[in-house]
Design a protein around this nucleic acid. Structure first.
Lengths: 253, 253
DNA sequence: CGTTCTTTTGACGAGAGTCAAGACTGGTGG
DNA sequence: CCACCAGTCTTGACTCTCGTCAAAAGAACG
């Protein structure tokens, strides 16, 4: 593959490079990964609970939710994935799906087979470390979701979620958080926050009445970013955005 | 190091081996890792928010909580770590702590410097994969906690937590879940579940009145395991316990 | 243009929080 | 050996956030 022929995985390399240092060889190895585009319809599971997963999925467009299930049939979304996220990278080392993945809107992903990912990770320690790091960031986000759902009231919870999605979207598109596409329904948002859609609706109204956000169709406009972060008790540190984590050259002590 | 001279890290090797395939060279490399025992007093933070972490900590005895903070000062525990867990392994690739770590009781850990861990991961791809896998399992547990806190009522939540701790303890000690040491106060449990200590107390009473569990001091006795898993809506799949994840030899597709 | 999904509203109910006081418990020292 | 003390656990009464149910109004889509 020549450098002038952009691989569809270029955004993935960019994403990895924003947190990990990769050399040219590593970049090329990733760009050369086999990948298969797939379009997924709205509200369609593309990974089911307990399934043996064989591909990781890079989100090109759309929105993906990671669903956990509780007995009474109510669902909880434990993570969401926006374009430039590699969903399911963890499945390379833990192939049995312990949560379902569903497209929340029509979504296009690039499927990358585990074998290929494992091979490049084996061959290039820097890539293995980068994959591991992405997994650590995912865990960090999950940890913050536990806090959000466990200890914040409904309005704060919603504001926090919006701050997170805004920040992640902005990092992906390179701008500042001002407006972003968020094709989830209020019922989906309820499942992300552990609330009911009725209550989510009331909280959206509250935020709009305070003129902190405004909504046009599926895009959310942030009117007062600072205020939203205050309401949402939001500190972006846990997202590890936009800073390259350099570490002292490895010494054993 | 001779095999007849047991390294304090032997339990760590055992833990890793329960999920990942390691050869003799890899085992020895891990057993040879530098490590420094440390005792931590009850309710003492040993990693603070935002700190640059330089060691991972293997829990030898005690109980560790990972704390997130919300504005109003209330704390939420997003993960707990029992003996044989390597806390903070993720910090090797993401050294800035985005949650605090606190001993919930007097705890002994083995501190292992990042540099050494990164070195063995670089040198042995199988170790890198094993570390990555542990991180994936941690994420899976976090994901289940989001579900637990987000969508289950108080009694179910508590039962689920007890099931998880029982299963993890049993895996560590090799038995079946029957009784386990759990030195957390009800206030700690409240912070794990996103409840108040008063309500946790009421739920503990409910479970005891139903004769599902009984409590002596800091150890919890499981009277009816099956019933507890039903009440707690518990399916241990997400813990990836006791099964070696074998995968087809890596092919690129 | 009708069908289906989504958002919005209102009245009411319930699970969990709050506050405050009292009973245990284990550890300490006189 | 007993008294004390701080930290837990337990209780009860009252409050409030959020859930439930149901119906209507809007949007989206073929």
């Amino acid at each position: 593959m020549s450098l002038s022929d952009p691989s569809p995985l270029q955004p993935f390399v960019n994403k990895l490079s924003s947190r990990s240092e990769l050399g040219d060889a590593e970049r090329l190895a990733i760009l050369d990964l086999p990948n298969f585009p797939q379009q997924i319809q709205s509200n369609r599971d593309f990974v089911r609970l307990g399934e043996q997963v064989e591909h990781a999925c890079f989100v090109v467009a759309g929105l993906v939710g990671q669903f956990g299930q509780s007995r009474n049939g109510t669902r909880q979304i434990s993570a969401i994935h926006i374009p430039t996220d590699m969903v399911n990278l963890h499945s390379v080392v833990a192939p049995e799906a312990c949560s379902a993945l569903q497209a929340l809107t029509v979504t296009t992903v690039l499927r990358v087979p585990h074998g290929a990912l494992r091979d490049v990770a084996k061959q290039y320690p820097a890539i293995a470390e980068a994959f591991w790091r992405e997994c650590a960031v995912d865990a960090s986000v999950l940890s913050e979701w536990v806090v959000n759902v466990g200890r914040r009231d409904a309005k704060t919870r919603l504001a926090h979620l919006l701050c997170e999605v805004a920040s992640r979207s902005a990092a992906a598109s390179g701008g500042v958080p001002s407006s972003f596409n968020f094709p989830a329904t209020q019922a989906h948002v309820a499942d992300m926050l552990g609330l009911t859609s009725v209550h989510v609706n009331r909280m959206f109204q509250a935020l709009r009445e305070e003129k902190v956000i405004s909504i046009q169709g599926r895009t959310i406009q942030i009117v007062e970013w600072k205020r939203l972060t205050q309401i949402g008790d939001f500190d972006p540190g846990y997202l590890s955005l936009g800073r390259l984590r350099t570490h002292a050259p490895g010494k054993s002590d």
